[in-house]
Design a protein around this nucleic acid. Structure first.
Lengths: 188, 188
DNA sequence: AAGTTCGTTAAATTTAAATTTAACGTTGAT
DNA sequence: ATCAACGTTAAATTTAAATTTAACGAACTT
């Protein structure tokens, strides 16, 4: 082998190593986004490699096609991967959302919305039930007081869910970026 | 049974039902905080019942003590539960963090800090490796260009991690509350 | 010091999640 | 129309996580 080819081969191995460093870090922090490590590795791979088909994924990760199919489904449901079309190809192509700001906004807002919705509904239901007891003078005083205390405790959390709702708005609307602008990172 | 006792019994059952509504909602949204549903149910229970011992937990949830012990450990590592001391009792008591703002801040900031730290480290490592190739004139031009493009792609995400770091500061310092004040929810 | 109580760790079991193999349905090509 | 290429779903298997049973060790009691 010529010295040139040898150098190139070493360089390519080094590039692959750098890629795996990035992919590994992404995969490791992906549990935050509620996906399994292997779905995280897939996302990282697509982020680095760009557009891919299911067959390319299975080759790159050494897994089966059905498992790629389900992992992509999960990542798509989180808005982290999108389907693209490639003219002239019958295969479906998928591409990782490469704008981390978008992923952040979509992911957390969706989750927080669910949190607010579930808990506020539960609070309202519980309040109704407790107030029926509080206002029922056929129930012993001690029990009515207990219901009252519980009701107050539960009601306190409402200001948190109200705040979280406004946080979602702030982030979803992009207004957050007026308080916290995106800074360019210049080459040092 | 006297009519009075009967009414009270019904009221108590209704209170328990209201509690379970709240506990269920908390447990269901707890996956956001990376804990299992049963750890979520435990947190919800402690939130509603206040200070508890391991034995009280196991009785209330119908599980074993070791599993309460490990669940508490997990919740403590997230800052969602704290140990308290009860004078005159040898048993350890635990109490759920009832300030949701505090939980939010502690939890997300910790997670995001880990995300930033892991990825920035990986990016710096990968950058170093890629720059060695880019600056090595013994490597073919095409490969060096490829390394350059990859390096640029990777570098772009730095502004996201920079922004996330500033978001953490904004929240950890409490400055977020000047932009997004906590509103009192008054009784309607 | 022997006996208890309490909490944790370790091993064993159960339960649930992830992955693969196999089979199906659809679409486009010949 | 038949065949091959794709992607998905279903069942079977493997792997990992959660839970329990069992055993240990520290701290207090008598």
């Amino acid at each position: 082998m010529s010295p040139q080819l040898k150098k190139d081969e070493v360089a390519l191995a080094s590039i692959e190593n750098a890629k795996q460093t990035i992919i590994g870090a992404i995969a490791e922090t992906m549990d935050l986004y509620g996906v399994t490590p292997s779905a995280g590795r897939l996302y990282g791979t697509m982020y680095i490699e760009g557009e891919m088909t299911l067959d390319q994924m299975k080759d790159r990760l050494g897994m089966t096609k059905p498992s790629m199919s389900t992992a992509v489904k999960k990542l798509r449901s989180n808005g982290m991967v999108q389907k693209t079309w490639e003219k002239g190809s019958r295969r479906e192509h998928f591409v990782a959302e490469s704008n981390f700001f978008k992923s952040f906004i979509t992911f957390y807002c969706k989750k927080w919305e669910r949190e607010v919705e579930m808990n506020v509904t539960a609070i309202d239901d519980a309040e109704k039930e407790l107030e029926a007891i509080i206002n029922n003078d056929q129930v012993s005083r001690g029990i009515r007081e207990y219901a009252g205390n519980l009701n107050n405790q539960i009601r306190e959390s409402k200001s948190y869910y109200n705040w979280l709702t406004r946080l979602i708005d702030l982030i979803e609307s992009g207004e957050i970026f007026t308080y916290l602008p995106i800074e360019d990172i210049e080459k040092e």
